[in-house]
């Protein structure tokens, strides 16, 4: 499993922190996890890992549009021009299921799980320095 989790601002920071449990669970199940956290969530590293490791699952966390999924500092990680492997993608990114998902499926991606609208969650600003303690931030509502 390849995980991308930039953490350059509040929204990505929350998604980054709340991905830890998934990584922990994967580790418990002896699933190899390649963790592109923070600045490592860039296109160069992403493409290098997808080519060399050929992950069966790619779990994106980061901003998105109908056409692209972004990494650290909102730099593009994947777009319709990317050559997908036979992976399954779960993209915790806005809007990417509208156009990018179907495009990648046409190019041979095994499955794309994503969102047709903006990814949305509530949070309490009192916990922005420690999102993991935010009692409401762990519940995405869309």
């Amino acid at each position: 499993m390849l995980v991308t989790r930039p953490d350059h601002e509040i929204v990505t920071k929350y998604c980054c922190i709340w991905s830890k449990d998934i990584i922990k669970l994967a580790n418990q199940k002896s699933i190899a996890v390649y963790d592109l956290k923070g600045k490592k969530a860039n296109r160069k590293k992403f493409e290098s890992y997808t080519k060399s490791k050929n992950p069966s699952l790619i779990f994106f966390n980061g901003h998105g549009t109908t056409e692209i999924i972004k990494g650290y500092d909102n730099q593009p990680l994947m777009d319709g021009q990317s050559i997908p492997s036979k992976s399954i993608i779960y993209a915790r990114s806005c809007d990417a299921a509208q156009s990018l998902g179907p495009t990648l499926i046409q190019k041979g991606l095994r499955a794309f799980i994503g969102y047709m609208r903006k990814f949305t969650f509530f949070y309490d600003p009192a916990f922005i320095l420690k999102p993991v303690n935010d009692p409401i931030g762990k519940y995405p509502i869309l």
Binding site: I10, V11, H63, C94, K118, T120, F121, F122, Y123, D124
Partner: peptide, 28 residues
Amino acid sequence: LRIAVGSEEFNKNDLIEHIKDEDEVGKQ
């Protein structure tokens, strides 16, 4: 409380205005 909708963040009063206006955020 604050709400993050994509890359934007809103407080309660912002949200009420968006809903009243029925714009993209309000509709969501």
